[in-house]
């Protein structure tokens, strides 16, 4: 066959084009569909609960993936900022995947368990109230919408999570029980953002918060709290910046950007404990305060050492000391 006749036969040309585009497709996309490395299953990674799945669908509906990624890369600074890098098995239940392509906001792959629910309720309602410079949209309407669960059982079936409609109903009832109970740890903030008529229902925001709290949690639970980190600051007992006005001033800046959202303006308390006091919840010595800020505390206090470093943690502590004095 004269090769040039290809340019005279449109149907043959179209077939040739399909063959040419098929080679790369076959090797890089089709064959990998069946490889174990693209579909690892880990017993540690659990499917979503019915409520988490509905929250995920709201995350998709609102296009959160347009500004937030969900994949931590194996880079030193990225692991320090977000946590352990993402593993393939963590996405095993994700249809669709939500890794994203742009970080206008921070990565969320490890956000589960980082903050208490109350943090999310307040932040979703009004991000700028917690962080001046944030450009995240407020989502007040999520708390004003009752979660539509009419398709939940069907969705769970299609997604193959391995539990039935009765289990879906049980999960929904149990979740509603939990978030509407007066004993729910974030009850106060939830009631502030949720309209009276929906206080006893599951709202879209409830589901969204449940989903965010699931992200990365299975892996964190499997790894446990990082062993050895407790000793990393065992030697930190005395604040090298004690009484330094410059350090206190810098500490104030650090406080405004990182702490104010939970602990309130001037540390007067929010859904995080009051700091302008000498009666600190986890102890008031320099070593105690350092340990609280650096390593976090149960009940929602995140660890700030990886982000701030020793130096700035001490400066924040110096500012907390000033708040104590001002409050006296």
């Amino acid at each position: 066959m004269n090769f040039n006749s290809l340019y005279e036969k449109p149907v043959l040309f179209a077939i040739a084009s399909v063959v040419v585009i098929s080679v790369g497709t076959l090797v890089t996309t089709f064959i990998p569909l069946f490889l174990p490395s693209t579909q690892p299953i880990s017993p540690l990674v659990k499917p979503y609960t019915a409520v988490e799945m509905e929250g995920r669908d709201i995350y998709i509906r609102e296009g959160c993936n347009n500004c937030h990624t969900q994949t931590v890369r194996p880079l030193r600074t990225e692991v320090a900022r977000y946590g352990d890098y993402s593993k393939p098995e963590e996405s095993a239940w994700d249809r669709p995947f939500l890794w994203g392509s742009r970080r206008t906001g921070p990565d969320l792959a490890r956000v589960g368990g980082k903050y208490p629910d109350a943090w999310h309720y307040r932040h979703m309602a009004n991000p700028q109230a917690m962080f001046d410079k944030s450009n995240m949209p407020a989502y007040p309407w999520l708390a004003k919408a009752k979660l539509d669960t009419s398709l939940t059982a069907r969705k769970v079936k299609v997604l193959g999570y391995g539990y039935d409609g009765a289990e879906v109903a049980r999960q929904l009832a149990a979740f509603r029980e939990t978030v509407t109970a007066p004993a729910y740890p974030s009850a106060q903030v939830r009631s502030q953002v949720t309209p009276a008529a929906l206080q006893g229902e599951i709202t879209e925001l409830d589901a969204m918060v449940a989903y965010l709290q699931k992200l990365g949690r299975d892996l964190k639970a499997a790894q446990g709290t990082a062993a050895g980190s407790a000793t990393a600051w065992a030697a930190e007992t005395k604040n090298p910046y004690a009484g330094s006005p410059e350090a206190e001033e810098e500490g104030e800046k650090i406080f405004k950007e990182n702490c104010r959202g939970c602990h309130g303006e001037k540390g007067t308390g929010g859904f995080g404990p009051k700091l302008a006091t000498t009666a600190h919840k986890f102890g008031g010595s320099d070593a105690d305060l350092f340990a609280s800020v650096a390593g976090g505390r149960p009940g929602g206090m995140p660890a700030f050492l990886p982000q701030l470093g020793k130096d700035r943690v001490w400066k924040a502590v110096a500012y907390i000391r000033r708040l104590e004095k001002e409050n006296r």
């Binding site: 996309t29 693209t38 579909q39 996405s91 095993a92 994700d94 249809r95 669709p96 995947f97 997604l159």
Partner: peptide, 15 residues
């Protein structure tokens, strides 16, 4: 509403 025919890593790769 629909759910992708692919999951996780494969969904990302196909996408």
């Amino acid at each position: 509403k629909s759910y992708s025919a692919y999951a996780g890593v494969n969904d990302a790769n196909v996408q």
